[in-house]
Design a protein around this nucleic acid. Structure first.
Length: 139
DNA sequence: GCCAACGTTGGC
DNA sequence: GCCAACGTTGGC
C-alpha cells in the first residue's frame, strides 16, 4: 500500500477544517501541477497520507485517508486537472516539524525534504513508519 | 517580505 | 524543440 503526503497552508485549509468535515471528506482541489496530479491519479480508496501544514507551522499534523478516487477538479473547467477526496483519520500526538525531518538522517530522501515545492507527494513505507513513530502514533 | 527553486509558457 | 521570461511556491 502506497503512502502520500498532502500539503496545505493552514490559512487556506487547515487540519481543523479537515477534521470538521468528518467522514464525508473533502475534495483536494486546486492542485495545478502535473506531478502532484499524477500522484493523485495513482491513489486508491483507503490509501493513507500525512496532512502537512506549509508556511505556518511547517509540520505534519495528522493522518488522512483517500475517500474518493481521482475525478475532475470541480473548481476548474480545464480537463487536465483531477483530484481525490480525503478525510481525516487522526491527529499525530505530537506534530513532526520540517526541521525534525531535515535533522533525521533516515528522512533525507523524503520529498518533503528534497522537493519542498511539490504539494502532493509519495511517502515510502519506511518514511511512513518513522514519521508515525516521531509523531507518537501507530503506523 | 524576500528570494531561491522550480514549473510553465511562448517566441523563435 | 530550445530556452528566456515569467509566475508560483514555500522556506527563511
Amino acid at each position: 500500500m502506497p503512502y502520500w503526503l498532502f500539503k496545505s497552508e493552514p490559512d487556506t485549509w487547515s487540519w481543523d477544517q479537515q477534521v470538521a468535515k468528518g467522514g464525508a471528506g473533502e475534495e483536494w482541489h486546486g492542485v495545478r501541477n502535473y506531478q502532484a496530479r499524477n500522484n493523485m491519479r495513482a491513489m486508491k480508496i483507503g490509501d493513507r497520507g500525512f496532512f502537512y501544514h506549509s508556511n505556518i507551522g511547517k509540520e505534519v499534523v495528522g493522518i488522512v485517508e483517500v475517500s474518493q478516487e481521482s475525478a475532475p477538479d470541480s473548481t476548474t473547467d480545464d480537463p487536465r486537472w483531477d483530484c481525490v477526496h480525503i478525510r481525516a483519520i487522526k491527529a499525530l500526538k505530537r506534530p513532526v516539524t520540517l526541521e525534525e525531518a531535515k535533522a533525521d538522517p533516515r528522512l533525507q530522501d523524503m520529498a518533503l525534504v528534497k522537493n519542498t515545492r511539490l504539494s502532493v507527494q509519495p511517502v515510502s513505507d519506511e518514511e511512513w513508519r518513522i514519521v508515525c513513530e516521531l509523531g507518537g502514533v501507530e503506523p
